[in-house]
Amino acid sequence: MKPINWLRLVFATMLAASALFPPQALAQVPGRFYWKNLSGGNALPLIYNSMSGNTNPFDPSHTVSPGGSVDATLAMAGYAHTFTLADRSAMAAVIFPMGRISGQVTAAGNAFNQSASGFGDPTLEFNLNVLGPPAQKNIPDALRYEPGVSIDLLADLALPVGEYDSSKPLNIGQNRWYGRLGMPTIFQIGPWVPGRRTTLEFLPAVWLFGDNDDYVGQTMETDPLFQLDAHLTRDFTSRAWGSLDASWYSGGQATINGVQGEKLNNLGIGFTFGYTVNDSLNLTFGYKSTINDTGPGDLRMDSFMVTLVYGWHPLIEGFKRLEDE
């Protein structure tokens, strides 16, 4: 394959993989999310989620409603841009969640059977690599990229401007500030050759939540939630890959008007299949579900997810124009 074609494939795979995915859905992102690519790249992710469980999937604290039953359709659109900061790879992004939610939940001792729809809380994300290969400032850098052992610092901040109805417990927006600090880590296993790449990836993170002082007329406080995501990813071909995913949640105890809820201590597992359609388009399909969820206070949620990510880089676009001449 010609160098430029390899570049395109590398770019397409990595840009698509590292574009935004929904942090809300099980508060988990697919594997390969934090692979790096050529500085100056852009991506538009379009994500579709179909979820059910006993918690509001738009709320990353996953406050459980014992005996509740919630169905949600969540879509997200976003924009991400990669750049170089102090010779390190960096990414800045914004995500706009939207969707519908309906179900029966209990809040403040009252049962609600309701639905909601609209736009959620936009989230800003910033990610900076601190250990691993230097930023890909040019094409040779991009072609040389191998993550080896790569560690990033990650920060998310959700802005409380989404649709919110204080009379209802199920909302698309969360009416409070929240965010995440994490440390995405990649271990490359074996050669970095499209078709043969294998990685073990971890994302230890802490979610921090402000208070929602108008949660069905009450105040909701939520303790920090520790989350550990793990992914074992493997190429099937140069364009297709799959991963086994797992997430562990601990903490996140919600207190509503002084009444404490349960701490989370749950495990979810799933899988993802990814395919690079062409230079600009990447597709994934995944399913995840909690597994230790038989107790009434256990988090129970499952989710189908389809993502379509469109990525572009001025250089790749230029090559295309030249070829079309």
């Binding site: 394959m1 390899w6 072609l143 191998e146 050669p191 970095w192 050759v193 499209p194 078709g195 043969r196 140069s238």
Partner: peptide, 10 residues
């Protein structure tokens, strides 16, 4: 057909 530069040598 291991043509990717990272496969060179394999």
């Amino acid at each position: 057909s291991q043509t990717h530069p990272n496969a060179w040598g394999d």
